[in-house]
Design a protein around this nucleic acid. Sequence first.
DNA 1: AGCGTAACGGCACTAGGTGCCGGAATCAAG
DNA 2: CTTGATTCCGGCACCTAGTGCCGTTACGCT
Lengths: 218, 218
Amino acid sequence: MVGVRWASVQGMVILVQAPAAVPARHPGRKRVTSQTELEQAAFGLFAAHGFEQTTVDEIAAAAGIGRRTFFRYFPSKNDIPWGAFELELERMRVRLKACPREVPLMDAIRLALIDFNRVSPAQVPLHRRRMELILRVPALLAHSTLRFTAWRQVIAEFVAQRSGRRPDELAPQVIAHAVLGVAVAAYEHWLDHPAADLGALLDDGMRQLDAAFSGSLR
Amino acid sequence: MVGVRWASVQGMVILVQAPAAVPARHPGRKRVTSQTELEQAAFGLFAAHGFEQTTVDEIAAAAGIGRRTFFRYFPSKNDIPWGAFELELERMRVRLKACPREVPLMDAIRLALIDFNRVSPAQVPLHRRRMELILRVPALLAHSTLRFTAWRQVIAEFVAQRSGRRPDELAPQVIAHAVLGVAVAAYEHWLDHPAADLGALLDDGMRQLDAAFSGSLR
DNA sequence: AGCGTAACGGCACTAGGTGCCGGAATCAAG
DNA sequence: CTTGATTCCGGCACCTAGTGCCGTTACGCT
């Protein structure tokens, strides 16, 4: 039901806290709901009345919990659409680290980018709703900046490791910003063109950027 | 005193409204302060207690106006550090449009980027405080997203015009995101290394990105 | 002086977010 | 079964940003 496997993860549990499925013998009262349940309740309300018109009170009421409790599951209303982002991010970090050094830097990044954003067909509608909220609701787009920083850091660390620099140097940061830019631009396009293939857009985006610098774009 | 010359500007007055200096025969009560004055009062408080610890009431009190009036000068507390950004942006738009077609696309952008971010030595300290707030205070960094969108749009429109595409196509958007990324990364570096030259960092950033795609970075 | 106009600013209200604290649920041990 | 430690729930009070409303104030012009 809860469906989040996380046995292998140890640290890095920032957003996703213990789901109720784990039978572990914890003392104390059981959690009455989960992030996933709250997310579903919230998404329903967002779809019906829009993000801004939906108050936290309404979400809490719809989920049958107190307003105060809501803020124990999500640090803010803006965090609702992000799901298990930190987990996904960790996945990308591992994937990049596992990439053989024979693969050229930008190829490695391009492939990881595509892989990171692959979703099973069954989850596409949910993913689309998520991204629609994140990229189209001004307050959420603004909030996303903070998540994007963590995302970029993963790229920057990979570039740094590969090129013998420190992650905070200019080159890794610039590349990380650029790659994130490709991702966001591809998503924007994907939202506007539902028939488009996200992976292809990401691939294309990276190649367009390449082309721009190679001078083939005038 | 007010010091904002704007006689030559006509449209595009979004943030900067009529300063009291213009003698124009407007009926009605005169404005009692200006964005610049409020900005100064606010910056003082920010430096003393930090952005988040400073309330709008305190800023208003320091400037000798009512809290309600503050919100007639700035749409939100988050907008304080942005100064005449819209005006600057318009300057960049004009500058790009004036660039001869002989100049290759990415060179034109690189030069405009450097030019856009040139500040006179006397204004460097203020500019640094501005950017420190915008890029280091989480709430302001988040808010900046909205301004950055407008900034990217200027780049995207230029690329589109040059390459015979529409601004919302993938290539212009990707390039715009990447260039903004260079700018932000350069500013981050500049904030960490006060001795560095911002123009050089921007130039370097663009070239690093170029190098990454040319495969010279491994 | 009087009139139209526009800015001021108080008041009340909404909404997100937080600290505090008593109460309820759960598990383990006696 | 009772007790106690632990953990979660959720009400309450409070803070802050931001907005609509509206009476008041200051200004320019006639």
